[in-house]
Structures are given as structure tokens and as C-alpha cells.
Nucleic acid binder design. Sequence first.
DNA 1: ACAGCTTAATTAATGTCGTCATTAAAGTGG
DNA 2: CCACTTTAATGACGACATTAATTAAGCTGT
Lengths: 406, 406
Amino acid sequence: MELARATNRSVRLRNRSALLSRLFLDGPLTRQDLMRSTGLSQPAISNVVSDLIGEGLVVEAGVAESDGGRPSMMLRVAPRFAFVIGVDVGETLVRVELFDLAMTVLARAGYPLDPARTEPATVAGHVLAGIDAVTTQARVSCADVLGVGIGVSGVVEQGTEAVVHAQALGWDRVPLERLIRSGTDLPLHIDNGANTLGQAEMWFGAGRGARHAVFALVGSGVGAALMTNGVAYRGASSSAGEWGHTTLVYGGRTCRCGARGCLEAYVGAEAIIDRYQEAHGGRAVPGGDEESRIAALVEAAASSPTARRVLEETAGYLGAGVANLINLFNPERVVLGGWTAMALGGLLPAIREAAGRQALRQPYEQASIELCRLGVDAVALGAATLPVARLLATGGLRPTVDNHHR
Amino acid sequence: MELARATNRSVRLRNRSALLSRLFLDGPLTRQDLMRSTGLSQPAISNVVSDLIGEGLVVEAGVAESDGGRPSMMLRVAPRFAFVIGVDVGETLVRVELFDLAMTVLARAGYPLDPARTEPATVAGHVLAGIDAVTTQARVSCADVLGVGIGVSGVVEQGTEAVVHAQALGWDRVPLERLIRSGTDLPLHIDNGANTLGQAEMWFGAGRGARHAVFALVGSGVGAALMTNGVAYRGASSSAGEWGHTTLVYGGRTCRCGARGCLEAYVGAEAIIDRYQEAHGGRAVPGGDEESRIAALVEAAASSPTARRVLEETAGYLGAGVANLINLFNPERVVLGGWTAMALGGLLPAIREAAGRQALRQPYEQASIELCRLGVDAVALGAATLPVARLLATGGLRPTVDNHHR
DNA sequence: ACAGCTTAATTAATGTCGTCATTAAAGTGG
DNA sequence: CCACTTTAATGACGACATTAATTAAGCTGT
């Protein structure tokens, strides 16, 4: 199982990684805090920290209050030690953002996509243009960029090179990594948008502190990110979490994936609109795009019993879907996100109740069901955490032997 | 995330654990094999191995073939270094088995349960009696028993003391660990029977070599064991894998758990019998217990179109349930077990086909769907692997400081 | 049968790294 | 300015793995 041999160096590596992670995730801490939370001895902490400071990864940031005794020095990850870029390849927009290590946005760029023809090459071009745009805009050298995280709304098969299957974009086996690679040397991390969003919520949002959490995303499509033992679970070929296409109504409505009775065929935005239309005698929901029509539907629920009933049914389906997640994963937390779920925020009590009806008592009581905190824009933020996660995991050591950078 | 500090000792610990695990799981190996598979240097291997041999954990077992050059020495875990006990607390029987470290059965004991009144104290008594029986029968001292693994058909909440919720036995919050603890000092490992069975298949059966696998068990009840990254995933309160109570037919048949449309309400043994009876105009399936009635039904399918249809429908439901597992977990392998699934073995092609209809293409193609190899008796074997897993994880060092045992 | 070759295992020297114990530093309060 | 307290830095020590060099133990062919 464990294939990595342990050597004396790996001890240092692990400890560096542990300290750096604590500092990154839990803000400024003193050496004493680190000592308590990692269990390492004082000299070891000081030793590692002095390395990290020497390399510019960590900086001292003021002194802590003290009532008697030498006050301890606050330590934090140097915000400008390096930068990361997060990209959100959505169905209608490619958004590129540049962050420092405090995850503050320094620059943004956006490129609308024509849903009719979303050529992979076009998207790759947008990503490369965005990288260029945000770095020049913020006057950041590419040499100081740790890497580029890219969240794509589709299945991302990780291999030697990430390959993307995105039904919504009409992509099948698109070698997105290779396409982007041809225009930049920056390290690339491509992942499912649901996973990157989940990662953002896990580190900075509703998932903080949870060990096992599920991020259930309902937008045009329906998906989920599974966090087990604090990290994303991706499965054998990185497609785990395809919650939207689990069967909830055996033999039910036909889903756009071809199967019948998928959850997405009941609670995806399009499905909700369709169901309302059917219930309403064929009359369509007013409004232009899906997003405004869902908003209109939610508003109409105040006066229209039909709209209300459709939304209540939606809560029932969604609750059952959440119950399935709870029964299978036994998470501490289920976080609902995605723009449709956000628009349906008022249904949360009904969803909870429906989940309670369908889930087993014991796991249901262990799980809290909440709304996400960061909004849908967090896909890029979450993507940007991917290179950061790598930095933390490697203890801040660049993979190759270019340790001369300081 | 990682709370364990790394120290120089932990290096040795990890390497011991890695070597021991390789030796246990992949049979006799040479020092050279270990060197290649772990990446450690030759002297390090020799050093650790000589410790292990000195402590009696490992023995040399003959020499390997050689065509020129000094032949290497085969090494293996000493079968009689220690013993483990596995217990299967089923719904009708408590089975206790004693194994050596080669996982050879040395002694067995069985205690039928009266399903009407399965008092926790009675079960605990049977377990204790069984421990006594198998150790005396095989003339093994309790001091040489590493621990007792117990697989229970119910949710096992791990805490300071394992607490069992077993609907089928009418148990709620039963402090089984405390009950057994009062009669023995042996280390106890209590877990869900599905998990222990999955563990057995993972190490010795259909799961060998898989990193991510799901063991789907269909018997009277329906459950699953989830193996992620080679180990059981238990979730926040150890109830992960409650596949049987996920909703497959929204608003469908009422399940014994109280919810509606659970998978178990369609493919559990009782449900199949009920569905046949309904389809057959109320006439019951002949036969005594569930097991023989399912067998009768399978046999009847050769001549009765009704029976055939019921079984085909069952394959459809089961396939959809498997598809849900595939979509959510993206496993390399789905292994079907449990006595009902075994009886329905002939349906495997139909189940595969149904799963293919409902699952997404990409994850479906990545997953193989197979029958289990070890049979239902493997619950005790799997339970017995729990103390072994602990031994391997700790590198063969007893937790307390009693290293003077050799 | 014995040199000559190959592969396996052990020994020796080196270097990394965390721990314990001790010392230096940097505050507060009387 | 001197006790007292808490934080940080040193130095001796021991645990371990690594590389390089030896020794051990078998084959092969003349």
C-alpha cells in the first residue's frame, strides 16, 4: 500500500509540510502554537522555521501579546513568496484570476464563450491569454507563479496528461493539458470544477474543519465533490462524484445522459423548468436564460401553487439525493452549492426534512446539511488552491533541484 | 491534516511496516524483492529484516532459484509468531475461528442464535466461549493471540468503545465492546460484517490488487463496503456504505427502515420473495427459510415466466444500484457478494448490462463487475484480518513497551 | 577442480535530523 | 535594577538510511 520509502530526509520534508500547512491554513501562529499542534520539540520547530524564513517562505509578522515572559513571534506564510493562478472554465465563461499566497485576488480576466462552438483550442487560447493578462496586469513574473489550477465543468481524467470529457461543452477526450502546455511552461493542475469548488469551500468556506464532507452542486448540471480524510477523493479515473447521474427514480424521466431517472433529470435547472412547464399545462417559465427563469420560478412560488408544488417536489428529490450521499458516505457535513441550489436556498429546511425521511437515523444525525459560503465564483479560487496544495505537500521545496532560488 | 509529527524513529516504524506488509500480503519474498518494491537500500532492508527475524516475526524460508550468483534467501512472516481470532456475529449464528498468521484456520466454534431473542449478553457470552473454545482446542495461549476481530451485521459506531446498532438483531446502541471486554483482555476490533467481508476479499479474494473497490453485499439485507486507496472507508461515524437504504425508486415500496424506495426494498431476499408473490397473484414461494425460497425461485425461473420476470427485474434494480456505486465512487472493481447475490450469480450478465444502461460510459468502462470469490464464510476471516492489519500498521511492534517478548 | 563471473548480503564511513538539557534573550512587576 | 517567567537558540547525543567497499555463495567452462 505505502510505496514511499522513508528516509531521514523525508522526516524533514514531512515536518516542513506540516508546519507550512498549519501556517497557511490557520493564519499567523507562534512557534509555540506550532509546537503544541504538531507535537514537535521546540528546537525542531525553530530549526525548520529558520529554514523556511531563510528561503523566504515564511515571515515574522509582529509579536504576540504577553503578560510576563518573552513575547512570542507571530509567523505566517509570506504572501508574496509566490503567486498562483486559478482558472474557471465554465460553460459560458473562462475566468482567470491571479492570487498571492494569502489568496488575495491581484488581477482578473474573463473571456465569454460562445456555447454554440466551444472549441478546445479556443478555450486553451483564452486560458493562455488570461495567464498573460493577469500576470502583466499585476506585474508578476511568471517565474514567481507556482502553477495554474484549472477547474473544468466535466470529467477530468488524470494521467500523464489530463484529458477532459465535458458533455456540456461537447468535449470528448480533449487533451486540454497538452493544448495549454504548448503555450506555457507553468505547472498545470486540471480538475473537475466541482472538485475545485469543494476544495475552496473545504479550506475557506463551509467545509472548514470537516474531515469527511460532500459538496453537492446543483446548477445546470448536478455533481458532487467528495472529501474524505480532508482531501478530495477522485476514484480510479478521476470521475468520482457523479451524483447527478445516479438513479433516483428507477425508470423515470429520461436524462440528457441517456439513462432514465437520474437525479439531474429532476433537480437540474433545466429539469426544474421542464417539470414546471409540464405541471403548468405546457406554458413556459418566463425569462431568458435558465438562471433568470429559475429566479422567476422561485419568485412565482409566493403566488402560484403550481410553482410552489414544483419547488416542494424538487426539495423532495434533492433531499432524497442528499440522503443517498449521507447513507453511502456518512459525512460530517453536506454542503449545497451551485447556482440553482443557491437560488433554492429557501428550500433548505424542506430539503433537510426530506433527507431525514429517506436517510438512516444514525448517519443523518451525524451530518449537518448547509449551504455553501463562497458562491459559485469560488471555482477559480479552488483551482488556485491546487498548486498551493502541492506547495504545502512538498514542504515548499520546488520539485526539481532549483533550491538556489533564494 | 497530518497531525503526526515525524521523528527519526518513525522512519524505522514506517519501513518495518512497509516490509512486513509486503511480506504478509505477497507471500515469500527475497531481500532483493523487498529492495525493489520498497525502494530502500540493501543495507536498510537487511537491517530491518534482521530485527524482524530477531523478534521472531519473520523467518527465512528456503532459497530462491538462481542461475549464476548467490541465491537469495526467501523470507516470510512467521506463521506461528502470533494468532488471531475472527468472529462472525450473523443473524442466526455466532462463528468463531482461530487463525495463524498464514491465515490458516486452526480451530472453529459455532453457536446458533435464536432469532427471536438475540440478547447482547448472550452474543457476548458466545463470543467469549468461542475464544476459550478455539484457543484450548488448538492449544494456543491467549498471550499469543494478537486480538479478536468481530464482524457484526449492523452499524458499528467506533468511539472509545464500539457501539452496535443492528436492526436485524433488534439492537440499538448496544455496547458490545464493553460486554465482551468484561470477559477478556484481548484487543478487540469490532466492525461491520460487510466491511470485514470486504477486507477479506480485498486481501485474499476478488479485490486483490485493486486500489478502489466496492463490495456490494446482498443477503437478507443489502450493504456495501467501500475500499478507497486500499483501505476501508468508514466515514464520520463508521456507517458509510449503507447502500441498501439509498433511494432507487423515489416514492416506491416501503422498506423495513421506514423510508420508501430503498434498494433493499427491491433486491433484498425478502423483497424478492415478496415481489414474486405479488406478481404471482399472492401465492407464496414454496420453501422454508429465505435462503431455500430464493433457491427455489431461481430454480423455478427455468419453467415459470413469472419467476423469470421477477428475477430479470431484480437484475435491473441491482444493476441500477451498482451503476450508482460506479458513478459515485468510480471504482476499479465492483464485487458482488452475500448469499442472495451468490444465488443470483446467473444474473451477472443481466446485472452488468443494466449497470451499463444506467452508469456513465467513462466510469462504467473503468469498472469490472464480478462475483466474490470467498463466499459468505469469509466474514470471520475478514474480521481476523483486523488485528493483523494493526500488526502490519505498527510494524509488528506491540503498542505498549513490551518489546522484551523475544 | 579451479579460475572467472554474477548476484546476494554485510560492514564501514558519512550525513541528516529530532530530542533532551542548557543557555541566551526578552519581556513584566515590584 | 533585580527577581520571575516565557520564548528562542545551542550543543551533545542517538537513531537511521545512504553510498561505497567487502565478503559470501553460488554458477560455468575449460
